[in-house]
Design a protein around this nucleic acid. Sequence first.
DNA 1: CGAGTTTACGAAATCGTGTTCGTTAAGAGG
DNA 2: CCTCTTAACGAACACGATTTCGTAAACTCG
Lengths: 335, 335
Amino acid sequence: MVTIKDISKKCGVSPATVSKALNGYEDISPETVELVLQTAKELNYTPNAAARLLKTNRSHNIGVLFIDDSMSGLTHEYFSHILNSVKEEAEANGYDITFISNNIGKEKTSFLQHCRYRNCDGVVIANVDFQNKEVLELVKSEVPVVTIDYSFNNASSVNSDNLEGSYALTSYMLDHGHTKIAFIHGEHTLVTQKRISGYKAAMRDRGLEVPPEYIAEAIYHDVASVRKETAAMLDLPDPPTAILYPDDYAFMGGQAEILERGLNIPGDISVCGYDGVNLAKILDPKLTTWEQDTDALGRIAVNKLIDRIENPQTAIPEYVTIKGKLFEGETVKQL
Amino acid sequence: MVTIKDISKKCGVSPATVSKALNGYEDISPETVELVLQTAKELNYTPNAAARLLKTNRSHNIGVLFIDDSMSGLTHEYFSHILNSVKEEAEANGYDITFISNNIGKEKTSFLQHCRYRNCDGVVIANVDFQNKEVLELVKSEVPVVTIDYSFNNASSVNSDNLEGSYALTSYMLDHGHTKIAFIHGEHTLVTQKRISGYKAAMRDRGLEVPPEYIAEAIYHDVASVRKETAAMLDLPDPPTAILYPDDYAFMGGQAEILERGLNIPGDISVCGYDGVNLAKILDPKLTTWEQDTDALGRIAVNKLIDRIENPQTAIPEYVTIKGKLFEGETVKQL
DNA sequence: CGAGTTTACGAAATCGTGTTCGTTAAGAGG
DNA sequence: CCTCTTAACGAACACGATTTCGTAAACTCG
């Protein structure tokens, strides 16, 4: 491994001078800078992140905490999109990303400990159980944090507009003449709560009452539970003409149930998903859904985090909402 | 930040002793070890990975190189499953994972430089263009490498059994009475080549000739190109009764074309995908496909890599093939 | 020309840890 | 009691970089 010392010897200057030359200090003559840069290239010098970190206390490394209960983790399409965006934006800003786990070596530790061990400059938290004590500990700690789709009062967050999304989808149904609109939602979280509010608000704004049996709880990303709730909906004495689903993927369960009953989408029943993942766009008919701007979610989360890292004093928590947009699809019929 | 020195002061022993006590050296008395561990816990001591690395030259960090041309990157379901598995296995063995990018700070560098900069103990390479000069440079370098779905002669690799997979799928079609079997495959790579071989071998073993128009090239994961090739297939004067697709996701393009023509799957035409991602299992009818054991792929790749890292002398390149299995589905009709 | 300023560089300390090699004191053995 | 071994610990250097502060030479300017 070629170090600063090797360069300093070859150039006949001190290591200090080499370091300064490499880092653009002002008190080095242009000729020396040139010489140093030249020989650095010649020797194929690579700086050592660990040594640098030890002195500067900056790792240029941001941690990503990305675990969900269903353990689908990285395979969750919505979150893999966000992760991809986080990665790209971080790299564009000179940061690398590392996953935060639960262990140091083979011993279990807390997320916070792990962050400290790896000297993460900051952490992006998404898709986790935000009630988890370890997560709370991390959020309260000295390490800069940005959360996605959940807000704490001492950390910035970036949020998908869940209230607007479900409001818009419901309104879209209403605009197409539907009044008997059901909502099969995911398990109870803050996100779910917002979506229910949006749905109810849209109905209320048109002066419509929501019968309790038109609201059912299933599980995000879970085909089976959604299928079951869909069946229950269709078995109602007065079944809905339109159903909102928790997410595009889970909708597949509803679709199966609907098709098996010989019903047609959207001929006999209108539906819409949520997320706007690729799947929605390649289904036939294309699924009407709310397209979340995962690219912006990840990008802005990283930007806020880096801002917080590089300007510790000025940074006060910000709560950004990212606007999604309706993907019209072909699964809502005009009544 | 609490360091070894803090512990040493509080315990009245030297930093050297503390370090040894923490690392299980034999020449420290049980009582001292106990005392040190106790106060370490009390002070909430966290070791510093950077300092440790600087001395030991081991980062316990493995890099992941994961980029594809279509830039779907992490959002590719097959690879996101592998990544997930890589992550879990690495963590279980006390390693963290970091993505390898193309830059150090904001300056562009090679993958190899980046690995050195971050002191990666090793790298898992998947889903990249293996002809890329930078990738080659990395493979040839001193840093331990394991490749997935591609083999170099100086590095271990873990491979999905592409030949067997397509052979098995084709045979399955044959067993169901099909003889006019078409194969729409992905763009030309080593993987593709193997799959074509498997397909042809299965046909040959039954004494069947493959008309050249029954083989077409589309693009992996690309719905549009697959749809186009499907259309061309169906327009043939003597169209196939069964079609093999490049992957489950891309099949959606074929499905759209088939359904739009009023044809039924599998009534009028039998199909199968490849990969065995979740999508295949929630489609209706369920898609017959070859289920790749992504879990094993990632896990074994990491194991081989760690083996290579921790036993540099004994490690000679190994080429492991991971067996997949047929997911029967419901898209192949008995003729 | 002399005093003050600027320019260009280096010595040395430091970040937190691991590891080698002594060193001291206690115990073993005759 | 004397020598030899063993147990338990610490001093000191090193890893590769950054940064402060000092300093000698060169330059400026009245």
